[in-house]
Simulated assay, not measured.
Amino acid sequence: MQRNVGGLDRIVRGVLGIWLVVAFAAYRDDKRERALVAAIAGAGLLQNALVRYCGGNHLLGIDTT
């Protein structure tokens, strides 16, 4: 896989990913589904930031490195 995530894009994905994973812990019992979706989205963004590859960027031909 060729890297296609870098610079400001990588920072934004990392910060937003951490924020969404932390939001998972903040929800109470009445909103479990929404919290789970937020945690999965956050984990995906963190994975993109750490690996520096995004399949969506690849499909759209976007390269921010």
Rank of each mutant, 00 (worst) to 15 (best):
R10K: 11
I62T: 07
A25K: 00
R28W: 10
G14F: 10
N57M: 13
R52P: 08
T65Q: 11
V51C: 03
E33N: 15
A38M: 12
Y27V: 08
Q47V: 10
N4Q: 00
F24M: 06
A49E: 02
Y53Q: 11
G55D: 15
R10W: 02
G44K: 06
G55N: 12
L60P: 02
I11V: 12
L20N: 12
V12N: 07
V37N: 09
D29P: 03
A39T: 03
M1G: 14
A49M: 05
A26F: 05
H58F: 12
L59F: 11
L50F: 09
L60A: 14
G14R: 14
A25D: 06
N4C: 06
V5E: 01
A35L: 06
L36K: 07
V37L: 15
N48V: 06
A38P: 01
M1P: 08
V37P: 05
F24N: 02
H58S: 14
A23K: 12
R10T: 09
I62N: 08
Y27E: 11
Q2E: 13
T65S: 12
L36S: 05
Q2K: 11
M1E: 12
D63P: 00
N4L: 05
G42P: 04
M1T: 12
L60R: 11
R52V: 05
L46N: 00
H58K: 13
V15G: 12
T64V: 01
N57V: 03
V51I: 07
V21F: 00
D9I: 01
R32S: 14
V15E: 13
V37S: 09
D63Q: 07
L59T: 11
V12E: 09
D30A: 13
G14S: 14
Q2I: 12
V5M: 02
R10F: 00
R28G: 08
C54P: 04
V37I: 15
V37T: 10
D9C: 10
A26D: 07
V37E: 15
G14Y: 09
I40T: 00
V51E: 11
L8D: 06
A26C: 08
L60D: 09
G61R: 03
L20P: 04
T65Y: 09
A41V: 10
A39K: 03
V51G: 00
V21Y: 02
